Amino acid sequence: MNRDGLADFLRIRRAHVTPAGVGLPAGDRRRTPGLRRQEVAQLAGMSIDYYIRLEQGRGPHPSRQILNALARALMLTQDERIHLFHLAGQAVEAPQIREDVPESLLHLISFLEEVPAYVLDARYDIRAWNPLAGALMGGLDSVTDENRNVIRWVFMSPDIAEHLDDEEKSRFARSSVADLRAAMGCYPDDRRLQALVAELLALSPHFAELWSRYEVEVRREQRKQVTHPAVGTIDAICQVMSVPDRDDLRLVLYTTEPGSPSHQALRDLRQLTLSS
């Protein structure tokens, strides 16, 4: 059980729930942003003392019934609820981030000749990719393993503006941090994941500000606009798909509307990779 993490999560999520959102009167002298501790305890059907101890990181191990009640009281999303259970040590077992990529997955991405495809792990390390993904993302073959980390690239790379505009970068950064929060709940003992978060907290004020919001949401489908120096702007749907029996891996595909200029741009990019 991660008592400090659970305490932080409860405090921050409580501050994001308005009284009106849960059917409570706001009152005239409200100083606390969001709900008061007493209101959360009332909504969850527990004693105020028990809830205070949870927020202070000194409470007992909460039952699944208590966690479900807190999830309802704080209006948590499904992703946030799963994160709450992980923090409370209610996962069936502690999964691990493995270093191998299934051979079948390597075969799959190699067959996707007109679709940029890569394999991403929970640390945001790109573990495998097809030639079109390598070309779209700037030559993955020629960079070090450290520079194949997508979230480090988003917050630390000086040339990201050449690929994503400010609005796109802001949207992707926020969703990535929320997704990384979910990963920290799933893999609390992974030292490389802990080191990545510590590095970004120390070096990127933007990351630190987003991390402090404690938003939790698993990354799924997202529209992206990528600018490539050779073929121009590509409007794509970034599809993030889970890998069966491997919760630590995801398959990422960039798809475009058939017959669109973006579709043609990807075809042009593929021809460049074949001729190089």
Rank of each mutant, 00 (worst) to 15 (best):
N2D: 15
D8E: 12
D8K: 01
D8P: 05
L10K: 03
L10F: 12
V22Y: 09
G23V: 04
D28V: 11
R29P: 07
R31Q: 09
T32K: 03
M46E: 02
S47H: 03
R58I: 07
P62W: 00
I66H: 02
N68I: 05
A69D: 11
L70E: 03
L74Y: 03
M75W: 02
V92A: 15
Q96K: 10
I97C: 02
D100A: 03
H107P: 04
L112F: 06
Y118N: 10
Y118D: 03
V119T: 08
R123I: 09
Y124S: 14
N130A: 08
A135W: 02
M137T: 07
G139I: 01
V143C: 04
T144F: 06
E146Q: 08
N149L: 02
N149Y: 10
F155I: 04
S157R: 01
I160G: 00
D166Q: 14
E167G: 10
A173Q: 15
S176P: 12
A178V: 02
G185L: 10
G185E: 07
D189Y: 06
A195I: 08
V197D: 02
L201H: 08
L201K: 01
F207T: 05
L210Y: 02
L210I: 14
R219G: 10
R220P: 13
K224A: 13
Q225L: 11
V231P: 05
V231F: 04
T233I: 05
A236T: 10
M241V: 08
P244S: 11
R246S: 02
R246K: 05
L253C: 08
T255E: 11
L269M: 06
